[in-house]
Design a protein around this nucleic acid. Structure first.
Length: 940
RNA sequence: GCGCCAGUAGCUCAGUGGUCAGAGCGUCAGCCCGACGAGCUGAAAGUCGGUGGUUCGAUUCCACCCUGGCGCACCA
């Protein structure tokens, strides 16, 4: 693998071979060996849907989790990143039904068994493709332990959980009003219902006639068709308008039924509408409760198919929306319609298919949540599980404090079938771990199994332990439960995280994970959610492998004409549009940025932020960073000449070597602290800055004169430091950019103790550098001097290649000594071939030199004959203005007795030191100004 | 109605009770120098959403307000 290094980093050639290398060597497998004493670090991967295809959300999961897992693995943890796939009940059934439809069939044509067979077949062919895509991102999961939620062992866990809850009286069957998805033909849990706010509807008013009088009672409704199921009209008990009607009966215009007027303070707000409310206990949640309170009849008039049933009289067979119009019309004909006003309402919609959810009376299985919720609340309150960022604790608490029982049965064919059996002979219900051959009560043969399946999230809630062999007490369970970190998007805090907490505590008596890390959602560059409607979806694989505009735009807006789709896309990603304004379909929209660049980009967003605006331009920036690493290594390698460095931090005596080890220590320390705090962005930023701006911009440049003209001893020391700093940097960056770091690391000569792969090499901590405040201070002074000289030259537009004489003056002897020692460095970095003169301050000014001030050093740059005139006075004035301003502020503060008395001593001392420094700088600037006149005077 | 989040350079975002601040991209000027499908050097640019308060001191803490986003509940 030690081939010639191409000039530029090419992700595609690097990625595939290293992934194979890692897997072949089993680096990602967690160990169950009893002799392995390493502490466990476990992260359960949120199992993507079997129907899923990798989107940026998944890419973010992989990036965050993989970085954490690789980091811990390198730190010597026995890391288990538990992967898997979710069977995704409704989603998968919908996909396969759609396929059947193309063949002109429905699932009913096949029957339940054959349909399930068909789904398994589909799964074998195209399901779980996402697991392969996760590998393209470098996911270091323990693929050998991968689980599918419908695997035999996980199905056993689901059944066990169900039976136990039933035996404990926490799982029960009840007839109540549920959310019915008319399109999918199944019940939904409350969480699966989305509230569509701002829908335009109308508030329709009609009258009921009071029995035995000509009086009318006007009610208002947004759903006139439900009046067919009205069994009462409610008024407020204190409402004088209707007091006389309470207890009277109303005539239902279409049904052979008398409807009582009841007084109800809970349901009725006398100030809203007419102050009289029609009550339909079988089709509305509030009315259901009202019906219970008053012992009303429950008349169901809408069927599970969304059509009016036989109790709807003349409206039977009509679709509910059709019936709405018909009822209104009929009421108008009867003179009972009393007008309508526009009304904004919130419609409950199925999160799956968007159809309007119908509240229906139905018998379903429910899990009693209150007790489990209380324990889940306590676990977080007591800190046994920490939610990060902590902002989410309130949301978590609010959900659990107001939790309703969980409807877990679904009228689907794909999923874990409810293990309940009904005896048709005696009505006995049996819930059992094994299918009963006969009714345990009356011995009637073959009780009928409940046809329903369980909510997909029921099995997901068991994930942290069902994947480890529960209900058996396996070694894996003992070793890997509870997990350390659970990382996921905040959108499934209720669906998944809270339920895992509850089930984990219930079944294992212990929290399922110590930390919950909640990440934001990836959105487009303008902050909009990604959706096909908006045409702003980006396939992360396109960013990795590169893609033409046609490919990108087709995925963003399937089926939409190119130009239109392109426009939408460019609007969502302005920086891309800018980059490729002249986009033609076949032109390259994204070059192959590579998995590393994408990962670095995603890792660079603060995990605390809720919206993560994905900017392709930013990915490009990180590809450049990979390229920088690549080329830095390309520079370093020839100098090392294959010499393997010794173990440990190499000795350093030269300023540059001491300094770079100091910066390395500081960056590594910061990275470690940040990672520990789940701040991948801060860790990355510290390392990025070190590599690019300290290591490449300064240190590599400083090594050049050493290799050109240094002594053998200097060269040897520099070689060792160079090799060490680069090798440590690659290790430090490996969790973020696994591919490029592995490739480069393999090319470097390394100490003998290093393992076969960087992914199991020790993660560098601060001690792999060497703190050296003295070197840091000296280097900073040097950098200021060099910066001042460069600025002078740049501002005077002197050709960087032109040699300029440089005179550095200071009365600080230490500084003079330093500048003398480092004069070669100064000369190299200022890019002047002339000798550098180091002098005491205050001498006569050399002719034609422009002066700048760098702290205590006067920097005189000789520009004779190179420029006409000078901007020196301008820049001195500018600098002085700044200094004066800072000085004034400091003086003012120090003049305040309250500040000096009350502020901490060190703050005051620091202010004084700064003041002194500023005063000195001001003096230099004053001198400089006086001297500036000399240069500005007409040349003699 | 309850709750959460955001509002900092042209853009996207970091950040801190202590000289009223950073990064990337973008912009401007110069360069191409044997690590750099790029890079290097330099520069310009912000009254840190508004109003009050706490404090010796607030962009950073508190209250209220405005704007945008989100969640939950309710809606005859």
């Amino acid at each position: 693998m030690q081939d010639e290094m191409p000039k530029a980093f090419e992700p595609s050639t690097v990625e595939a071979r290293w992934y194979a290398f890692w897997v072949e060597n089993g680096f990602f497998a967690a160990s169950l060996d009893p002799a392995d004493g390493r502490p466990a670090y476990v992260v359960p991967m949120p199992p993507p849907n079997v129907t899923g295809s990798l989107h940026v959300g998944h890419a973010m999961r992989v990036t965050f989790e993989d970085a954490l897992v690789r980091w811990h693995r390198m730190r010597g943890f026995n890391a288990l990143w538990q992967p898997g796939i979710d069977h995704a009940g409704i989603a998968t059934q919908t996909v396969v039904e759609r396929l059947l439809k193309r063949e002109g069939k429905s699932r009913h044509d096949l029957g339940r068994e054959a349909f399930a067979e068909r789904v398994w077949q589909w799964k074998a062919e195209s399901g779980g493709r996402i697991a392969l895509q996760q590998r393209e991102l470098g996911a270091s999961a323990d693929w050998g332990r991968s689980k599918f939620t419908m695997d035999e062992d996980l199905s056993r866990a689901v059944r066990e959980a169900f039976v136990r809850l039933y035996e404990e009286g926490l799982l029960y069957r009840d007839k109540r009003l549920v959310n019915w998805d008319v399109e999918a033909q199944t019940v939904l849990s409350d969480l699966e219902v989305e509230n569509d706010e701002g829908a335009q509807g109308e508030l329709f008013e009609f009258a009921y006639r009071v029995e035995g009088s000509g009086e009318e009672l006007v009610v208002a409704t947004t759903r006139p068709e439900t009046m067919l199921g009205d069994t009462a009209v409610a008024v407020h008990p204190d409402d004088p308008r209707y007091a006389h009607l309470v207890g009277r009966k109303l005539v239902h215009p279409f049904a052979d039924r008398r409807v009582p007027v009841v007084a109800d303070a809970v349901l009725v707000d006398p100030t809203f509408g007419t102050g009289a409310v029609k009550v339909t206990p079988a089709h509305d949640f509030n009315d259901f409760a009202t019906g219970k309170r008053h012992g009303l009849e429950f008349v169901t008039v809408i069927g599970f198919d969304g059509k009016m049933n036989e109790l709807a009289g003349p409206f039977q067979g009509m679709d509910r929306f059709e019936a709405r119009k018909a009822v209104k019309k009929k009421l108008a004909e009867l003179g009972l319609a009393k007008g309508a006003k526009p009304h904004t309402l919130t419609l409950p919609r199925s999160e799956r298919n968007g159809s309007i959810v119908e509240p229906m009376l139905s018998t379903q299985w429910f899990v009693s949540m209150k007790g489990m919720a209380d324990r889940a609340l306590a676990a977080v309150a007591e800190g046994r599980t920490k939610i990060v960022p902590g902002d989410w604790v309130k949301t978590y608490d609010h959900f659990l404090e107001n939790i309703q029982d969980w409807c877990v049965s679904r009228q689907l064919w794909w999923g874990h079938q409810v293990p309940a059996f009904y005896c048709d002979a005696c009505g006995e219900v049996t819930v059992a771990r094994h299918d009963p051959a006969e009714c345990p009560k009356c011995r009637a043969p073959s009780p009928r199994r409940d046809p329903d399946v369980l909510d997909t999230w029921f099995s997901s809630a068991l994930w942290p332990f069902s994947t480890l062999g529960w209900p058996d007490r396996t070694p894996a369970l003992a070793r890997f439960y509870p997990a350390a970190d659970l990382e996921t998007g905040y959108d499934i805090l209720f669906f998944w995280v809270a339920r895992m907490m509850m089930f984990g505590l219930h079944f294992l008596g212990e929290v399922p994970f110590r930390r919950v890390l909640l990440a934001g959602m990836v959105v487009d560059e303008t902050g909009q959610k990604m959706s096909k409607v908006k045409g702003n979806v980006i396939d992360p694989l396109d960013l990795i492998h590169g893609a033409s505009f046609r490919e990108v735009v087709e995925k963003a807006s399937p089926g939409v004409p190119f130009d239109e789709a392109l426009k939408k896309f460019q609007k969502a990603y302005p920086s891309t549009a800018q980059l490729k304004a002249k986009a033609s379909p076949e032109a390259e929209c994204f070059p192959p940025f590579g998995a590393d660049a994408l990962r670095l980009t995603l890792a660079s967003y603060s995990p605390a932020t809720r919206r993560i605006p994905l900017a392709p331009k930013r990915v490009e920036g990180y590809r450049h960073f990979c390229n920088k690493l690549w080329n830095a290594t390309r520079y370093v390698l020839p100098h090392l000449a294959g010499l393997a460095p010794a173990e440990g931090v190499p000795p350093a005596t030269s300023l540059a070597n001491r300094w770079v080890l100091d910066r390395l220590a500081s960056a590594l320390g910061e990275a470690f602290r940040a990672l520990d705090d789940y701040r991948l962005d801060e860790a990355l930023s510290a390392l990025y800055h070190f590599v690019w701006h300290d290591f490449c911009d300064w240190y590599l440049e400083l090594t050049k004169p050493v290799f050109q003209q240094g002594s053998e001893a200097e060269k040897a020391e520099t070689r060792a430091v160079l090799a060490h700093a680069l090798e440590a940097s690659l290790r430090a960056l490996h969790p973020f950019a696994p591919f490029v770091t592995e490739d480069l690391w393999q090319r470097l000569p390394k100490p003998a103790s290093r393992p076969a792969s960087v992914c199991v090499a020790p993660y560098p901590a601060e001690a792999e550098g060497r703190n050296d405040p003295e070197a840091a201070r000296q280097m900073e002074a040097l950098q200021r001097v060099i910066g001042a000289a460069r600025a002078v030259r740049s501002e005077h537009e002197v050709h960087p290649g032109a040699p300029v004489p440089l005179v550095l003056r200071t009365n600080d002897e230490g500084l003079r000594a330093l500048l003398g020692r480092e004069s070669v460095a100064v000369r190299t970095l200022v890019k002047t071939h002339e000798a550098v003169a180091i002098e005491a301050a205050g001498g006569a000014r050399p002719r034609g030199h422009v002066l700048a001030v760098a702290g205590d050093v006067e920097v005189l740059v000789g520009l004779v004959g190179l420029v006409e005139g000078s901007k020196e006075l301008d820049r001195i004035e500018r600098e002085k203005k700044k200094v004066e301003k800072d000085l004034a502020a400091l003086e003012k503060r120090l003049a305040q007795p309250s500040f000096v008395e009350k502020a901490p001593a060190e703050v005051v001392a620091e202010a004084r030191t700064q003041l002194e420094a500023l005063v000195r700088t001001r003096a230099r600037l004053d001198e400089a100004r006086a001297l500036a006149a000399e240069l500005d005077a007409p040349a003699g």
